[in-house]
Design a protein around this nucleic acid. Structure first.
Lengths: 117, 117
DNA sequence: CCAAGTATGTAGTATGTACTAAACACTAAA
DNA sequence: TTTAGTGTTTAGTACATACTACATACTTGG
């Protein structure tokens, strides 16, 4: 997978192709950071932004928050909290799911959602 | 649930009841920190230690690592990495599991382990 | 009672996180 | 040709994290 900076730049440039509102400066202004900072993040000259800033970026660029956070080396604080509430249980489950293919995990998601538990 | 400091002190004092090697000084020496630091952590006068230090503590006190990390507001880095590899998928699953009772989650763990997927 | 071991108080530090602020250099339109 | 917008460079900052080092005070077995 691409690193955060590369991914952000690519996405922003794509949006910018049909909308000039997606310049570094204007995106930065909308999400509340300095353009110089966003520029550095996109080029990997700066560590990934905070969770709050990544959330605003995800919204502005219409991207999946959990994905952007992951690229920034972070995990959504609401997920972290859920895990911390039952650490041993979730740790066991997640480690067991590490090698399962996507479709198998998705099947579990669906079963849980259907209430078969 | 108790906070990290209280929990650590309780556990250490319990061990110390039949083994003088579990004084603040001696535990601190074994896990490689200053006794003053461990003392402050146990009394909640200091922020939780790093993941590495919590791991050494867990081993010395024979405690569950994921639990101590959770009490310290952290998530094991290996779990974080597993989640970051498939962020959207795991995010969905974990949020769906939030309200499931322990026994239901355990059933999933067992099914995954039995290879019924 | 005193010496050894115990816990704790106070002060300070190195590194990382998450940015800001201002200036600079380029491009294209009016 | 200047001005409005673009991205970038450089320098610096406020706060958090994760401790250390040393001094002080308590406690308990011999």
């Amino acid at each position: 997978m691409a690193d955060l900076g590369t991914y952000l730049r690519q996405k922003r440039e794509t949006l910018r192709a049909d909308d000039p509102r997606y310049s570094v400066r204007q995106v930065a202004a909308r999400i509340g950071v300095q353009p110089s900072y966003l520029s550095k993040v996109e080029r990997g000259h700066e560590a990934p932004p905070s969770e709050a800033t990544l959330r605003r970026l995800a919204e502005d660029l219409d991207e999946n928050v959990d994905m952007l956070l992951a690229l920034g080396g972070k995990i959504s604080s609401d997920l972290a909290q859920i895990i911390r509430q039952r650490p041993a249980l979730f740790a066991e489950l997640i480690r067991d799911l590490r090698d399962l293919p996507d479709h198998a995990v998705l099947r579990i998601v669906r079963e849980v959602r259907d209430g078969n538990w």
